[in-house]
């Protein structure tokens, strides 16, 4: 169950091999009562590595293969054994994501398709199954890792931005449907230095996965629906969104 401080005992993590997932699970386990975690993702090796790192902080951690590019029915099927192993579900962490190379994507529709599958449709399909599960259970929380990118479209990464926007909007709708019995928390960080963003030009201000993890846990405790990291990202985005488009497309965002 979620405790009186809004923190879970059992969590299901999609994109469990990611740096952000590892950091958030670790924060929930170290400062909260989290003790049983199912990690799901496409690569067994990344999952095992994260599970090994988290082992010291958890009672039990198991890994399950899940490919969000797969057909709808196989995504639903892949969730079942994880749910059964958990025995109860307090928290869902949606941390799956891919950062496509926009220059390649500009000319390769397959990259476009895959980005939407991993960032948009796949998560939406999985969240639909899990939201139903939580709704029947009558309690719990959904944590969806979005991005400030979901709120602004940039010339040099519009595929990523658009696919994240799809997930972000979908999660907002879920929040309208599920709250207040189920907490829905949409995390919108600025650039985070992780393996996903490795090799990309790093902006002047960036975050560590641990910073995002701390902000996420504080935000869900505060019952915040949208968690901007850092909080100043919110007015910054608001400012950008009122600028004329012909100016925005030239900004070095």
């Amino acid at each position: 169950m979620l405790n009186a401080n809004g923190l879970p005992q059992r969590a299901l993590v999609i994109g469990g091999g990611s740096d952000l997932a590892r950091a958030i699970v670790r924060e929930l386990a170290v400062s909260g009562p989290l003790e049983r975690v199912a990690l799901l993702g496409p690569r067994r090796s990344s999952l095992e590595r994260v599970a090994a790192e988290l082992a010291a902080h958890l009672d039990a951690c198991a890994t399950f293969e899940l490919d969000l590019r797969a057909a709808t029915s196989s995504i639903a099927d892949a969730l079942a054994p994880a749910l059964e192993w958990l025995g109860g579900l307090d928290s869902v962490l949606m941390a799956a994501g891919t950062l496509p190379d926009q220059e390649v994507a500009d000319h390769d529709p397959r990259v476009v398709e895959e980005a939407f599958q991993v960032n948009g449709t796949g998560p939406a399909v999985a969240l639909t199954v899990l939201a139903d599960h939580l709704e029947r259970a009558g309690a719990g929380q959904l944590i969806v890792l979005s991005s400030v990118a979901a709120t602004v479209v940039r010339r040099r990464s519009y595929l990523y931005d658009a696919s994240k926007a799809a997930l972000d909007r979908f999660a907002l709708g879920l929040a309208d449907r599920l709250e207040p019995a189920i907490g829905v928390h949409i995390v919108r960080p600025i650039f985070v230095a992780t393996r996903m963003t490795e090799g990309r030009p790093r902006p002047a201000v960036s975050l560590s996965a641990e910073q995002v993890a701390r902000a996420t846990v504080a935000g869900l405790q505060a019952r915040r629906r949208i968690i901007w990291v850092p909080p100043l990202a919110r007015p910054a985005i608001a400012a950008i969104s009122v600028l004329p488009r012909r100016l925005v497309r030239r900004l070095p965002l």
Partner: peptide, 9 residues
Amino acid sequence: PARRPGLEA
């Protein structure tokens, strides 16, 4: 007051 950072730990 509940749900404050650090309280649970």
